[in-house]
Design a protein around this nucleic acid. Structure first.
Lengths: 192, 192
DNA sequence: GCAGTATTTGACCCTAAGGTACAAAACGAC
DNA sequence: GTCGTTTTGTACCTTAGGGTCAAATACTGC
């Protein structure tokens, strides 16, 4: 056959993800991408068509491996509302503690590239769907167990939760501490 | 004295704002900035220290002239809640109708530059404050007139509204129509 | 109408972005 | 061991980013 590649594709993409996550798409240079991924420009462009192509892989990777880490809070044992609150508070902690202010890559991508890169926008949108879906099934669970008012439109609540999670991740970008964000979570949990 | 500048500073900054708003900070080039502002590179760098300096002026301009356009919805006549709903629905319409998907410059800036440009981050944060303050005084008005439950923490509600507005503007980036966003506003208005 | 100051023009500079081209190397099949 | 294929690394290319500078110019105060 042929010469096998020396690098692990997934590992390299994970490294690239770090760069794009820290800097955004436009500010990430092929130079730094190559260095952090541990491969030369040749290999980089051989394995991934272009910067755009690489970024698409990165988004898929984030979708498949990074986003689920947070959503895992929703499938833990315990009361539905407690799980929700735990997720929101964890996100707040993570965002405020991060000196790089990376936030959420899906949101960052939607902000930076929606309207100029259809593929990226679509992948970001898919992640929003995914998150909303996770909220939806949790809400429905809560409605079955009586923890959540069953007369409310579950879909509406799920969208509402998604919206608040999104807002928090943006406000977390400039928040100096968690007080305002926690206050928001309080209001949110009180609202349904 | 000296030769007077040929261009109107405010008008030029407004033009620059368009560019940064459409493209983001990193993707806006001095070339395009100069062209759209109607002045050569020399003049550009003479009047504004640097790309960063210009961007700061742009943010101040947005803060002073663009953000108030939306917040004006809150000071119109009519019931407090109706005004709030009107603002949210207007934002949704604007965002979904915009083919450029510009969204909100304050949010875009927070996402792109928080953690790497302290001045920009601070200006974005100030705009969040401004918006929250507008919500706060409206809520307080509602509490005085009895339109809003006076037992609730007005500050909490104001932060909550800010968070939802922020979320909407992000989700609006990838939304194909207004259905989900309207649903969110419904949930929000029902929640207090 | 001249002096003095500030603006404008446009050429110019250096670095890097983003990508390509190609030789050499590394393997598996046979 | 050779062949054929794929990776790699390096050198290279073009365009543009971000910015500077000197000269030319246009005002105002006197």
């Amino acid at each position: 056959m042929a010469r096998p590649r020396k690098f692990q594709a997934e590992a390299a993409v994970a490294k690239a993800m770090e760069v794009f996550w820290e800097k955004g798409y436009a500010a990430a240079t092929p130079q730094e991408l190559g260095e952090r991924m541990g491969l030369g420009r040749g290999s980089l462009y051989n394995a991934f068509e272009s910067k755009q192509g690489l970024f698409e892989c990165v988004l898929r990777h984030y979708h498949a491996h990074e986003a689920p880490k947070l959503l895992a809070f929703l499938t833990r044992p315990g009361p539905v509302k407690a799980r929700l609150r735990a997720l929101f508070l964890a996100v707040i902690e993570i965002d405020v503690a991060d000196p790089e202010r990376r936030g959420c890559l899906a949101i960052n991508t939607a902000i930076e590239l929606a309207g100029r890169d259809a593929a990226a926008a679509q992948l970001a949108a898919r992640m929003f769907e995914q998150t909303e879906a996770a909220f939806l099934s949790l809400i429905e669970e809560g409605q079955r167990t009586g923890e959540v008012d069953a007369t409310r439109d579950a879909r509406e609540l799920a969208s509402f939760l998604l919206n608040n999670l999104t807002g928090l991740r943006v406000l977390g970008k400039t928040a100096e501490d968690t007080t305002r964000l926690t206050r928001i979570v309080d209001a949110l949990m009180r609202s349904f």
